[in-house]
Design a protein around this nucleic acid. Structure first.
Lengths: 163, 163
DNA sequence: TCGTCTGATTACCCGTCGGTCAACAATTTT
DNA sequence: AAAATTGTTGACCGACGGGTAATCAGACGA
């Protein structure tokens, strides 16, 4: 259960990325560039997050993604459960398949407490908190507004092309 | 890093099993039956534990396995590191590949503390503690002494039987 | 309607983990 | 030496996570 998968890490970064782009649609391509996630892989992940109601996607011309709710209302626990699915079930710390309330392993009580502590931490941490981390990496503030021509100007929206 | 793998669980049960068979050689077949581990899979695992110096094996007729040290001196942390190997390296709780002391994730400090707490628990728990769990399952006390005809009334525990 | 932009989907590749099978090698008894 | 017993080893399999490529399908502007 414990260390979240790399895929969940991608999801967390992607959501943090969307948070930096307040209200505006963000392209999967941009999120991929910002977070360092392979675009095709990210695409599937984003779709899954759509199905789970964490973000909203719009396809076609001027499509993209937005957070479905304010970042402060999306906990990492929610993200973890959305991405990890059934793998998020509590397992015995020692890897004992037979460990149960009837047959408790030597670390059973300890692990129950720790697990709850960790879940509490994930519950208390939100996507908004992740923004600070993302900003450290200089990844969020892309804000390539050339994609959103201000209607009163007809500037060509050539999307740079990246490094 | 955290929930130990199923394989480590097998190793823990196997070692606990050997503990119940104080000093005597135990067959891989018996360990497999007692712990519910597939025999061929267990065989490789036992061999790995031999290489890591946790147990000693003897092949051929009247072969088997014994603990290399008293069960009280074998910590679960040692078992985990022996079985999991490099996978036991500390990873970011959130699955962030870029998480490092320079770019700390929102759970970095928290996770460092928790991880140490868990390692301490594993360090403090030994194979002797596992025996209680194994006994709960009624798995340990096989003790099929018919395999050990009393040629010498007092088994001098001559396990080493050097080459 | 057409062309283009965008996400969605399908198929496939690779490495690891848990697991199985079969052949092999070592040791002791006969 | 032969046979019986036991651990050892390599090949192989299926499932799953991470990753890639190519194609499909929806939305908008002209």
């Amino acid at each position: 259960m414990l260390p979240l998968s790399q895929t969940t890490g991608y999801a967390i970064l992607a959501l943090g990325c969307l948070n930096g782009c307040c209200g505006r649609l963000m392209l999967a391509r941009e999120i991929a560039a910002s977070t360092g996630t392979p675009l095709p892989y990210l695409s599937k992940l984003l779709h899954a997050l759509c199905r789970r109601g964490l973000i909203e996607g719009k396809r076609g011309y001027r499509g993209g993604f937005v957070l479905a709710r304010p970042a402060e209302q999306i906990s990492l626990l929610e993200v973890a459960e959305a991405v990890e699915g059934d793998a998020w079930l509590p397992r015995c710390l020692l890897g004992l398949a037979e460990c149960s309330p009837q047959q408790v392993c030597p670390a059973h009580e300890f692990w129950a407490v720790e697990r709850e502590r960790i879940k509490d931490k994930l519950r208390a941490t939100t996507i908004a908190d992740v923004a600070a981390f993302a900003r450290q990496r200089g990844l969020v503030p892309l804000r390539d507004d050339s994609r959103f021509p201000p209607e009163n100007s007809h500037s060509s929206g050539s999307v740079e092309g990246g490094p």
